[in-house]
Amino acid sequence: MLKWFASLAVLAVFSASGAMASGGGEHKLKHEHWHFDGVFGTYDKAAAQRGFQIYQEVCSACHGLKYVAFYNLADEGAPFYDPEFPNSNESPVVKALAKQFTITDGPDDSGDMFDRPGLTSDKLPSPFANDMAAKASNGGALPPDLSLITRARHDGSNYVYSLLTGYIDTPHGMEIAAGMNYNPMFAGGDQIAMAQPLYEGSVEYTDGTEASVEQMAKDVTEFLTWAADPKMEQRKRTGWMVMIYLFLLSLLLYGSYRAVWRDVEH
C-alpha cells in the first residue's frame, strides 16, 4: 500500500503544478465563503434568485447569458426549481418570465423576421445582435457573455465578487484613460471599461433583503456560478454515490485478492 501513497504523492505534485500554472501576477482576490464551496456544497437558491434579479435589472443591459435557456432556470439545482414541476418547461415562474421577453424569430412566410413573446425553450436574449454591435455601443470594449464567466477566470467566483466590489478611489498620481475606470481586481490590468455597476440600493429586492453592494455582488455571483455550472449539484450527488460504490467494491476485490493469494508467498 506504500506504493499507492507514492502514486498519490505524484498526483499531488502534478495537481500542485497545475495550480501553479494558474497563479498570475494579479491582485489578491477577496475570498468569500460560498454556499457552493466544497464537496457537499449546493447553491443557495434564495441568493441565486436575488442574483438573477441583479442580472436582469443591471447586468443584462450589456451582458448576455446565451447558454442559459428560460427552462434552465427551473431545472433541478437551478434558482427557480420547484419539485412540483419536474418538467421545467411547465414551471409557471419560467413561463411567465419568458413571456415578458420579446424574441425575434423568423423568417416568416414573406421572408421577414418577426417579434413574438418568449417561450420557455428560448435562450435568454443577448443585449446586442453581435460582438461588433456590442463593441460599437461600448466604446470599443466587448462586454463578455456571462454564461461561463465564473469558470473562464482563475478562481472565478471570487474573481467576479472581487471585481464587483473592487471599485475604489484612484490612487494619487495615476492616469486613468478616457472611458476607463480604476479597479485593481480586474484581470486585464488596473483599468476596466465597465463603470461600477452596483451601488447601494441599485435594486429593490423583492424578498426585502438589504441591497448593499456586497450583498448584491454576492448574490449575482451565486447566480452566475450556477449559470456556468448548472449541473453541479447533480454531479456532486452522483459523485458521492460513485465514491461509496467504488469504496465498497474495492473492499470486496481486496477480499477476493487475499483469498486468491492466500496460499502463495509473495
Binding site: Y245, L246, L248, L249, L252, L253, G255, S256, A259, V260, R262, D263, V264
Partner: peptide, 28 residues
Amino acid sequence: MADTTEPTRRDFIHIASGAASVVGVGFF
C-alpha cells in the same frame, strides 16, 4: 495454488465482487 475444491466461503467473496462489478457496469 487454487484448486477446484475450495470451500464455498472462499467462493462467496469472488461471487460478491463479481456481482458488484457487474452491477456497477450496469449502472454506468
